[in-house]
């Protein structure tokens, strides 16, 4: 028997694409749409939703319902959202400040060393985030690698309480996602014609001016890509706040997860998820716009 591919190119196309597309559509697009619908339904206190229409979930984002049903402005959730955005922004900024010089350093190395350094940057990205976050407990925690010597030398006599706060979460975010800052920046730095750097040098630009006026503008697409990747991933990060923040300092994703576990408020969880997706979509849109604008820099 001879197996034949369908002759009709359209049939063949759909045959080839459908497993991937249908899987993603059914188990990702549809569920997200469903969650969007859920956010406009009344909550069922055993989890799930009830029939009908309700704006409660969205109202709950901003207001608290008083006993007599009047709405009082309540910023507790906004605070968590704000903290998520701020932590993500700070994490992104720190990643950039730390990562850019590293990318610049790697680009200047001879090719073989470059490859090895890039591999070293890449490896953590592909290793378990949980483990990576956990390893910081050994460093920052009570009796950890930082406190132990300080205690032994008598420089401090009590725990520094570095864990379970915004600082620890920030460290975790930078640690988790900095490879995604360095790699795109490296990729666009690598494309820069080094002749331009020498030309600027020749025209009386010192090192700082070269970086500021030539290198940075030319690798802007990479910087934007890196910043948005790190920001978006930090914003939705679950592991750092739950492991290093000890679950006390919540971020958006902990709040979402909480709604689907202990709190059993699916509509509110749905609304929060939609909000997160909107923030991410906004970030991606900004990225696409910015990269179009700088397209002329590509050779």
């Amino acid at each position: 028997m001879e197996i034949k591919l369908p002759a009709n190119p359209i049939t063949r196309r759909w045959l080839g694409l459908s497993p991937a597309l249908i899987t993603i559509f059914i188990f990702m697009v549809l569920p997200i749409a469903l969650l969007g619908v859920y956010s406009f339904k009344p909550a069922d206190s055993y989890g799930g939703v009830e029939a009908g229409f309700s704006l409660d979930a969205w109202i709950q984002l901003f207001f608290d319902r008083d006993l007599d049903d009047t709405l009082i402005f309540d910023s507790i959730y906004l605070q968590i959202i704000w903290r998520s955005v701020m932590l993500a922004a700070i994490g992104t900024t720190l990643s950039f400040l730390v990562g850019f010089p590293v990318a610049w350093y790697i680009v200047q190395q001879p090719p073989e060393r470059r490859d090895i350094l890039l591999l070293l940057v890449t490896i953590p990205f592909w290793t378990n985030l949980l483990i990576r976050a956990y390893s910081w407990i050994l460093i920052l925690g009570k009796n950890g690698m930082i406190e132990q010597p300080l205690l032994a030398m008598g420089l401090i006599d009590d725990s520094l309480e570095m864990m379970y706060g915004n600082m620890a979460i920030g460290v975790g975010l930078v640690y988790s996602y900095i490879p995604l800052m360095i790699l795109p920046i490296y990729a666009s730095l690598e494309k820069i014609d080094f002749g331009l750097v020498e030309a600027a040098h020749d025209l009386y630009a010192d090192r700082w001016a070269v970086i500021q006026r030539i290198v940075m503008p030319l690798c802007l697409p990479g910087i934007i890509a890196g910043c948005i990747l790190v920001f978006v991933l930090s914003l939705g990060d679950f592991i750092s706040p739950s492991i290093l923040g000890g679950g006390k300092k919540m971020m958006l994703s902990n709040l979402i997860q909480f709604q689907f576990s202990s709190a059993r408020n699916w509509p509110f969880g749905g609304a929060l998820t939609m909000l997160l997706l909107m923030l991410v979509a906004f970030g991606s849109y900004f990225y696409i716009k910015a990269s179009r604008k700088s397209a002329y820099l590509e050779k």
Partner: peptide, 17 residues
């Protein structure tokens, strides 16, 4: 798409589905 959507969103959406 799965690269763009934050994992937590995929997780809870899949759960509700």
């Amino acid at each position: 798409l799965p690269l763009l959507v934050p994992e937590i969103a995929t997780a809870v959406a899949t759960l509700s589905f």
